[in-house]
Design a protein around this nucleic acid. Structure first.
Lengths: 151, 151
DNA sequence: TAATATTTGGCAGACCATGCTAATAGTGAG
DNA sequence: CTCACTATTAGCATGGTCTGCCAAATATTA
């Protein structure tokens, strides 16, 4: 992982479908060594994959909520059950284990406030073992970058 | 935006570098109408771009922090200044305007706790106009999906 | 039903990816 | 300082992919 690798990574975070030729030109390499570096980054797991960035509202997901959750108990079974179930919920895009007052922070996307209430009541609450749920809604996004800082 | 468009979107959120031929096969279209749909989604802004998903730790960013910020005042100038400066900070990947107790939630990535302290003191605090800063660190990620729910 | 608009499929030329080989640069021991 | 060795790079050729164009098919409206 040298400087060229980081250049490649940032270029592909900006535009993941950029052609290998353009990428090579951008980092001052010829295409074939450039491609080898990309493949290595992929195989070693540094690059985990590629995704389309999609406008959530245009897709029909008007609501983005950050949900802070505390569990009632922290025994193995409660924790594992919670995490397994969360993993299966399509509306939950992210789930982080947190320091501080809450155990987990979720990022949830749904189409409406009604759908959010439905999600909380019929999905989250039903899990059991949940101590508290605290929701904040995002009603605007100033910045949403996919590019890591340069180092 | 019909069902096929949504299928295309979800497929490209899963694998943004998938070839148009494979994508077409997956949604039961021939390559050319499939490509046309993709281009339309791009031009209309539904698909905003494509990115490589990169392992932050492998890149050298060990710390992910969610930072909750309240401004001292909410006059036009303070707000605009804050948002413009935030936009220029590479360490801030996301900045959302929030409902509830705090005005903004940031997602910040840095290489170490030292670097985080440096970021807070020499970047954030220096902005001025900030009422309170409250940080939670993510020390694990259960889920990090790029694929929207099916609808 | 007929006319129109929209979407689709197939084809061809240009572009790109990628394995192979040779050349170059970097490294360490003598 | 030189030589041998390794790692990395560049160039080339082949095969695959993209994408614009035109005709056919499908859906829509009157």
């Amino acid at each position: 992982m040298d400087d060229k690798d980081r250049q490649i990574i940032r270029a592909l975070q900006r535009d993941g479908r950029m052609s290998n030729q353009d990428l090579a030109a951008m980092v001052n390499l010829s295409p074939s060594p450039c491609l080898r570096r990309v493949r290595n980054l992929e195989k070693s797991g540094v690059i985990e994959g590629y995704s389309a960035r999609v406008n959530a509202r245009a897709y029909g997901l008007a609501i983005t909520a950050f949900v802070h959750i505390r569990l009632e108990r922290h025994d193995e079974e409660t924790v594992q059950n919670f995490e397994r179930q969360i993993d299966g919920m399509e509306e939950v895009l992210e789930c982080h284990v947190m320091t501080g007052q809450t155990d987990y922070q979720l990022r949830v996307v749904v189409e409406s406030l009604d759908a959010y209430e439905r999600f909380i009541r019929t999905q989250l609450q039903r899990l059991g073992g949940i101590g508290s749920i605290d929701t904040s809604f995002a009603y605007g996004t100033i910045k949403n970058s996919t590019v890591f800082p340069a180092r």
